[in-house]
Design a protein around this nucleic acid. Structure first.
Lengths: 225, 225
DNA sequence: TGATTTATGATGCAAATGCAACATGGATAC
DNA sequence: GTATCCATGTTGCATTTGCATCATAAATCA
């Protein structure tokens, strides 16, 4: 399994692990690389898994789908991000979410259950892995709370402004680019797509924002508040 | 600091730590106990903290408040639960949420930053603490995703039914009791309180649910779907 | 106990929003 | 290159929902 060392080094989960140790790590823990085409499901709700997924390239989305086919996007992950770790690390190996490739993606699967519950912890990288994992899950937790801040707002406009404010903070600019198109954005905010498009137009008319495709600019008017 | 040993043993964060080790743990890491009256803020958004909080008794709520005074309840925690750990473990010590006592509560503060970033890991309980923490945060993560499932629903009725279904699963019964009153429930679901009351009445009329105070019963009619 | 605050329930109303349907443009596939 | 699929924008309409307000019940406090 040949994976670019530079890429591996940049993955937060592997922070502090030496280049020379990757061989031992993958040997000890085990690892499997797989490619998924856009639209393919990587995990399906109800599945069991002992492995976490790591996005090597592409983009994946964490979803909840109900029996009516309604879809909620819980997370949108790019390269170096990890998914499924909440279930493996939480000891509840039955997934309650699905993970779908939003683009053609290379995924590295790591049987992290071994690290958590089987490995004796003797390996040098064992503790580093767990420590990195705590940090990552904790960050993800904060992100999920931010998502909740958005979805608990009472109006579409507030939801959108909160979302854009968060992006502005992350990207350090009042002009921000979302990885989500209209369809996905609606499923992320938990609103109807056409209502979203309509409200975006109203917000532009009201001078709150400007936008072009998935790039939005928060206007000064809004920032003053 | 005298704390009931039985209570400590029952706290998931301390799983696997021997009774005899608590002295060393609190001595090494440090700990502080404090009482909060109902309504008092334990943490305020914007605060810095190196400590996590552990609920010894009472009940606390994790909130996001905006400049207009709107409040979103992100979590509702009873005894043995932990809060603030996402920030301490994630290395972002500035809180983006507030924590408020929903009842008179005893809180144990633990400077967990020491465990994560300072202690060399020599103590016997060090690794146990971190391992427990991963598991807890992971579980909380799953819970937050479930909350998102609720708030992304498009109608108040769906939100409420999803919430009740989750409670039913947790409590193993179609008759469930919520820890939240109407005001808090509305702020948890992200809806208007009076609209919630109105919709609850409609759902009862439609034969979907029955309720009395904060105890709800999902009717068979709904379960068949 | 009596007084005051807080939670809950009810309702009118305007506005927001979900939903359905259709047009169009861009992307993808063959 | 052409056909097909999918994302996006638009609009009408019925319904839902937020918001404001008031009445009452319940809880808290003095």
């Amino acid at each position: 399994m040949q994976i670019d060392q530079k890429l591996l080094q940049g993955i937060p989960l592997f922070k502090g692990i030496k280049e020379s140790e990757f061989g031992a790590l993958f040997g000890c823990v085990g690892a499997k690389r797989e490619r998924f085409e856009k639209g393919e499901f990587i995990f399906l709700g109800g599945d069991q898994t002992n492995s976490i997924g790591i996005v090597l390239s592409g983009r994946v989305q964490v979803l909840k789908e109900d029996i009516f086919g309604n879809r909620a996007i819980l997370n949108d992950l790019g390269p170096k991000a990890v998914f499924g770790e909440s279930f493996v690390c939480g000891g509840s190996y039955t997934l309650t979410v699905s993970v779908q490739a939003a683009e053609n993606s290379d995924i590295l699967f790591l049987p992290f259950e071994r690290v958590m519950h089987i490995c004796p912890g003797a390996c040098g990288f064992h503790n580093a892995l767990i420590k990195n994992m705590v940090e990552m899950i904790a960050r993800k937790n904060i992100k999920l709370m931010e998502n909740l801040e958005i979805t608990t707002k009472h109006s579409l406009r507030e939801k959108m402004l909160t979302y854009l404010s968060q992006l502005a903070q992350e990207q350090g600019s009042v002009t921000v680019t979302s990885t989500l198109g209209r369809v996905d954005l609606a499923d992320f905010l938990g609103v109807d797509r056409s209502a979203l498009t309509r409200e975006l137009g109203r917000m532009r008319d009201a001078g709150l924002i400007q936008f072009e495709k998935n790039t939005y600019t928060l206007s000064d008017a809004h920032l003053k508040t």
